[in-house]
Design a protein around this nucleic acid. Structure first.
Lengths: 246, 246
DNA sequence: CAATGAGGGATTGTTCAACAATCCGTCAAT
DNA sequence: ATTGACGGATTGTTGAACAATCCCTCATTG
């Protein structure tokens, strides 16, 4: 192990160090409450009350609000305060429009890079993409298996989070930090919709087999079929969600 | 013109009303300075100095910093201050990776919706997409013509901004507010790279004909060719930029 | 001469208190 | 039922204050 290896390992842990901002931690707490569904969409977050409850100043709290506002979990109305975002049907449609672009795009990028690294002539992109394929889809496989295990135990909220992790892992195939972050924000926003839905079992159960199918297609390196499977998945999910949302 | 029409028009102008936040305006000023290239990447933005220069309090200024930090124009290093973002080569590659997904994805979405609204059976998406096609590509045409006019006048910075508007307009084909916003942030980030480049003429001139070609393909409703043309465009642009950045 | 360690000035992180601006509900008037 | 005015409550913004941290300098040490 050379010196540079040590430094790279340390650099990977740096993110854990710089995390010590009060506003950031406050944002973490609020984000958890929102994604858990404790803070229902539409509720107003009073600066004074929450500041007193968390023991932080109004200024610091406002910093945290800005953070969550940019993640679209809160909306900030001037001179009125911040509210937990309430998504409209158009928002849901837009989110799925973007999911189509991001998730199918990630699969497509993976396919192109796989092909580019298969014939060794053109490896302009990350080297050895095809050789690393088994590791690359490992997180996807883990998410699918977690979802199936949780379903067997009847823990449907865990199925939901595992399902989210599945899609996050698929988007990670593009190996683009910005795409991955955009996908993370998108899924956090979608959670706001899922919480207003009843019957999580019927909703999540149907997607178990679809996720498994997409995983097998990716394992078989059949990218075209995987992309179209993802596309139809998103079509049905959007239709189901839009219907349940009215 | 019925009453509901009036209300919809007013609602469209609401965004112009709520814009009166001091932090937001400060962010606008700083954003302009950054995208103009006056604030060179790497420079530190002192809270005290800028606060005094703009006549705003430190707290308000920090809110503006946070806004621009979320747009990735500034980086915030704990206990050290905020700096104009300095992009690495990996950042440039990632930005183009995301451009491929977003811009090609937007063209693809447009193609799918065009086909869906062409056979009137399935118009689940926005109605009459194919009928509105001429209006939809109008902003793209305007951007191309502006770029050509500015090039004829030798105003190469205007060519650059028109070029940006071209790609923004292409991404707008998906009619997804979130995709459009993501594209806007992406292009603002890319401006940081363009400013460190010399010879704007040689850089932008080559893309005039390519943009025109993509426009003509879109006009002819040849979506497949338009998407692949955009893809090769991004390939060459990325290669050129990566080379110039070393 | 290189490396280490202590000191000090400058900048940021966070809090607090205060005032102006704005919103919202209530109530009276027409 | 609509309009207008009033008052309480909340947010927007500021200025000051103190603690925490960083960065530069310089002396020490081997």
């Amino acid at each position: 192990m050379t010196t540079t290896d040590w430094l790279e390992e340390l650099q990977a842990e740096r993110s854990r160090l710089g995390r010590s901002s009060t506003a950031g931690r406050v944002a973490d707490v609020l984000r958890a409450r929102i994604t858990e569904g404790v803070l229902v969409p539409g509720t107003r977050l009073s600066e004074e009350d929450i500041g007193a409850a968390l023991g932080v100043s109004r200024n610091t709290l406002r910093e945290a609000f800005r953070l969550l506002g940019h993640e679209r979990l809160l909306v900030h109305e001037f001179n009125r305060g911040v509210f937990v975002r309430r998504l409209t049907i158009d928002d849901v449609r837009d989110l799925y429009q973007l999911r189509r672009v991001l998730e199918c795009g990630a699969v497509r990028r993976a396919a192109e890079r796989f092909a580019a690294s298969a014939d060794a002539s053109e490896d302009r992109f990350a080297p050895g993409f095809a050789q690393r394929w088994d590791e690359l889809i490992q997180p996807i496989r883990a998410a699918v298996e977690d979802a199936e295990a949780s379903a067997a135990r009847g823990q449907w909220v865990d199925v939901g989070t595992a399902n989210m992790r599945f899609h996050q892992a698929v988007s990670a195939l593009a190996e683009s930090p910005r795409l991955e972050e955009a996908m993370g924000h998108l899924l956090a926003e979608l959670r706001l919709v899922f919480h207003v839905m009843q019957a999580p079992q019927a909703f999540h159960e149907a997607y178990l087999v679809e996720n498994r199918a997409i995983l097998e297609l990716l394992t078989a390196q059949d990218f075209g079929a995987a992309e179209s499977a993802m596309s139809t998945y998103l079509d049905t999910a959007e239709a189901q969600l839009v219907e349940a949302y009215t």
